[in-house]
Structures are given as C-alpha cells and as structure tokens.
Design a binder for these strands. Sequence first.
RNA 1: GGGGCAUUAGUUCAUCGGUUAGAAUACAUCCCUGUCACGGAUGAGAGACGGGUUCGAUUCCCGUAUGCCCCGCCA
Length: 628
Amino acid sequence: MSQPSAQTLRAHDNQSVGVYPAFFAQRTHFCGELANDAVLKHNLLEKTVTINGWVSANRDLGGITFVEVRDRSGIIQLVADPSKNPQAHKILSSLRDEAVITATGPISKRPSDTINPKLATGELEIYPSQVELLNKSKPLPFPLDEEGENVEEFTRLKYRYLDLRRQRMFNNLKLRHDIVMGIRTHLNQKGFLDVETPILIKTTPEGARDYLVPSRVHPGKAFALPQSPQLYKQLLMVAGFERYYQIARCFRDEDLRSDRQPEFTQLDLEMSFVSMEDVIALVEGLLKEVFAVAGVSIQAPFNRITWHEAMDKYGSDKPDLRFEHCFTDLTDVFTNTEFGVFRQVVDKGGVVKALHVPGAGEYSRKELDDLQVDARRYGAKGLAYIVYTEEGPKSPILKFMSEAEQRAIQEKTGAKVGDGVFFMADEFIKACSTLGRFRLQFADKHGWRDEAGNAKHSVLWVVDFPMFERTDEGVLAPNHHPFTSPHPDDVALLETTPEKARSLAYDVVYNGEEIGGGSIRIHQADLQAKIFKLLGFNDEAAREKFGFLLEAFQYGVPPHGGLALGLDRICALLANCESIREVIAFPKTNQTICPMTEAPGSVDEKQLRELHFQWNLPKPKPGAPDQK
RNA sequence: GGGGCAUUAGUUCAUCGGUUAGAAUACAUCCCUGUCACGGAUGAGAGACGGGUUCGAUUCCCGUAUGCCCCGCCA
C-alpha cells in the first residue's frame, strides 16, 4: 500500500545514465523526506541533497533570504546569506511564488532559536550551493496558502491544476488512490476478476436519462453511455466468471447536486452461486478494510434494519443512526379521535407519527412558523405541534383533543416541560418521510449527532425493500431494478398484492448517506417474465429492451447477486468533504460544465454532417444576451 | 422545471441612494541580515450584463447570465 521512497524513485526514474540525461539537477530527496527525525535516522545531517519543487514563499529580509520549496510531500526551507554565498542569494531573492526550481546543498540544523515547530522539516534548512530556475510562474489567480474553501469554487475549477497544488487536495486524491488500491487488493485476494465493460452501449429507457453518442456509421442511431454496468456484469455471471469487479465510470444525464456528478465512479461487483448473506459478508470485509485505510475503524457484522422499520421509526430508507430520536406511533391514540384532520387520515388507513424534540418548548413564535414553511416545502400541509411550557402545553390543535389523548401523547413520547412534540398524519410513506426530514433538521438544530455517548460512525444494512413502488400514474415500477429477485417468502404475493412483496435488495448506509446498494438477481426465465409482466412490459417490449439478456438467460444462468458502491461518496465521507467534487480531480459545476476546458463546446459543421446530425435549438429566453 | 442565497480590485471581504468606492492579501518599486502569516514605505488595480425607478443607482425594482445550496429528477 505504501508509495515508493525517494530511494526507489531515484533508482528507477531519476538516474539518467542513458543517452538522454536530464538537463537539470535531479532530486535526491522529496522535501517531506527531509523531516527532522528522518534526517537524523538516515544520517543525512550536513550531507548534500538536491530538491526539486515549487517556491511556496520568499522572505527576503534585505540580506539573508529564506525560500520555502514545496513538492507533493512537504516543504523545506532554503537559506542564502549574501556575505557567504552571493550567487545563491542573488537567485533566491529573485524567485517569485510558484517558480519551479532545483536546489542543491547541505542539509543543516537551524540555530536552536529559529526552529519552526509547525513544519515537519522545521529543525532543518538547506544552504544551497546551486540553485537553478527551471521555470517561473505568473502571479496566481488565487492564494494557495489555505484550504481553498473560501475561494469561489468556479475559480478553483477554472484553474484546477493550481487548486490541486494544495496539500489538502493532494491528500484527498491520495486517499482515493489508497482506497482504490485497498479495494483491488482485497477483491483480488477474494478471487475477483477486474473486467472492463463497454462505455458505448445500447440505450435502456429505464431509470435516469442517458447520455447519447450519435453513430457516424449508422445514420439515425446512437450509443448510450452506461448508467451502470448492470447487464454486462450479469452476463459475465452467465459466462461463468463467478466473481467480477470493476471500478466503473457511470453516466447519468440528470441535474447535479453536491453529491451528484454527470459522470461518477462505482465499485461494481457481482458473484455467482451466492446468497444475500455471502454478498453482505464480502462487502462488510471490504468496507472494513476500506474504512481502515482512512483510519476509521468499523465493526462487522454491520447492524441491519428492515426498510419498513427504517421508515417507521426514522422516516428514511437511509437513516442516520448515530443518534436515536425515533418516532412514536400515535395512530392507536387517534383511532376514535374527534380531531377531524387526524381522524380522516386514520380512517383512510394512514398513520399518525410523532417526534419528541427536547428543548423545543423554548421555540419562539417565529421558529414555529418557520417550521410550517419548511413543512410546505417538504410537500406537507403543515407541521402540527404541542410545545410544553411552564404555563402549560400550547398548540393550535390542543382544543380539538380530549384530555385522554393529550395524556397519551405525553406518556408515549415522554415529553416534559420545555420539550415539544411534532406530528405528521398521512399515508405511511408520506407521513414517515416528511417527519424524517424534520428529524434531520432538528438533529442539525439541536446537535443530536454530537450528543454524548453517540457513535461517530454508523454503518448499517437496510434490507427487505419493497419490490415495487407505485408511480404517480398508479403503475408498478421497480424499487431497485427489474432484475431484482423477490424475497422467497413473498413470491406468492406477486400474484395477489405485488406492492406488498419484498425483494432481496439491500443498501449499505453510512452516517445517513447511501454508499451502496445491490440485490440478488432473478436467474429463472419464467420468474423474470412474470416480473416484466407486472411492470407492464409485454413479451415484445421486454424482448425489444432486454432481448439479449433474456436470450442469455436460456443458456444456464447461475444464481447470482452483487452490489455497487459509490466510490466518490465514500471518498468524500472519509475525507470529511461536503461535496464529492473535493475528491474528483476535474469535476463539473452544477450546470454540467467544466470551467477549465469550457466543455461542453460547440461542434463544427463538418463533424455534425459526418454524424448526419442536426440541432433543433430552443428559442433563447427573452432578455437573454445574443449568442454568437 | 421550481425555490433560496450570491455576483464590487487577481483573490477574500466592506461600503445600505450623493463617497477621490474602503481594507486585507496578491502584484510592482524601494528599504530591511534569522524570517516562517517577516516587517516598513510608495504605487497601480474593481461595481456580471440589459432594462427600469430617481435630479442622481454599486446601493432600490425587474429581467438575463453565472455560481453555490435545496426540491423535482437521479430504475
């Protein structure tokens, strides 16, 4: 896992003994290798070293001049005294920030009163006998002295190659590298083969919008870029590869977020002759090792929670279980209530969920009003509440409730004076998911995540997902994807009430973020046909969309299943970054452009003609400046 | 597609209707021999775009563009 030392690099890369020697003095050491203890350990004191790097600071005191040199490993200070070495001083004092130099000289101890404890090399410095300017730099468009969070991200992305000079950014991408290496090593030991699958594939109308690539050779036809290697990895199982993985680039033409890019990376894997438990066990071992790369220790086996319980108690299919604060179900309390709003919901088979928020009794009128605004933004009519103050309970809905109901609310939730209880009454998924958003909102506001005794890291499996969901049009859609196997206990339900059937799908959730998901796949042609029928595909439509898969399924398909992990998200979480853009070298902005290359760009007529392609452009918006 | 916030020197921020638009840092010139966020002096450098309101707009309003965050969307 460790990187080669400078010794290794010198032996293989830096010893120019051939016909084309380097035209500059090549490094004997990385700056960071000249750390205080390492220099003592390797007996380097007063030995001549050569460093190559960028000038990160120049402090010319009028006579004596200090220059800090940075390479990817760290920083070391050069010193020149004009009375002792006027040539070196002349060059050093003329160096500007980010100039590329090579410097050679003895590595020496600093006078004891000039040690800089903030630098790993702070007890040492180099008195260069030779300094060569290899390249100078224009003044930078933004400072590199801090972490970069306070510079407009667009500017950072426009000059990403400079932004990546920050130690933090190097560390992020180094962590990503280490994680990928950890994955490859682990899966290799477990007998997985890395197989590349095509990037130019046939469009599948399911799921997200596809990126399309018009075909030159086949006028009027187009390739799609894969949203995932799903079908190919299943075909590799048909082929008998048994265990496949790929660090796969995936493409989705949807609107972006801080955790969504148009192209992103998944660790995709698939296994044959396995049960769900086999996949889970494998992934637990893998994630344990991956997290350890980042110094995060997690325990396997992970906790498991059913989808229903996750929704019922936490209002999310990716619950953050670093803290408890779960819902109380009050449906029973209101089965015969006089309170019309709740009664209607309960009569229709809905639920009444309550969330107890300690400290909410102190909320101001404005805070309570703001919650109503949030509720409407979340698609609810409002957020009913009772706050318990010194003067007694206060609530707009109190007058509709009986004494017994009020007592039951307080007993069941455990609310005391100074607390609040918030209610959501609706159809199960709607009520739970809306209140679930408030659970996270209250967690931010009251610091629930950091409460004493809470786990810092919560990794869990969410299992027993419903097989289908009803779309707005009332038709069944796959919750995971159409190849997901139903739960063996629920196969009979497919005939009667398919929306109640569970699947063998599973998600892995870390601190409230979905970092991966997978399933056991269907491997029986007749069951797959039945699922397609439920999804509303007739035989012809199924054949048109997935004919090659159905055909393959007639030639001996092993039971198989797998999973995909969101590599960008995992890296961002382990690097403590808010956005996956911080762990991607060259990401796109929210408008799906690259500020550096200005992609996407115009295409010249000749290229379009070759593709038999013609734009059909939307009208510009009124008030928009003329486009050239 | 919708909502919120933002857009002023290279960068990061001020300026709340009349200002020579201010500062820090970067940059340039000069001074400075142990700095490490070196210090000191001097200098150059700015209102996204298009409308409107007003005697007067960087400031208020509308639109457009762009950025960030969120909703929809993301099997």
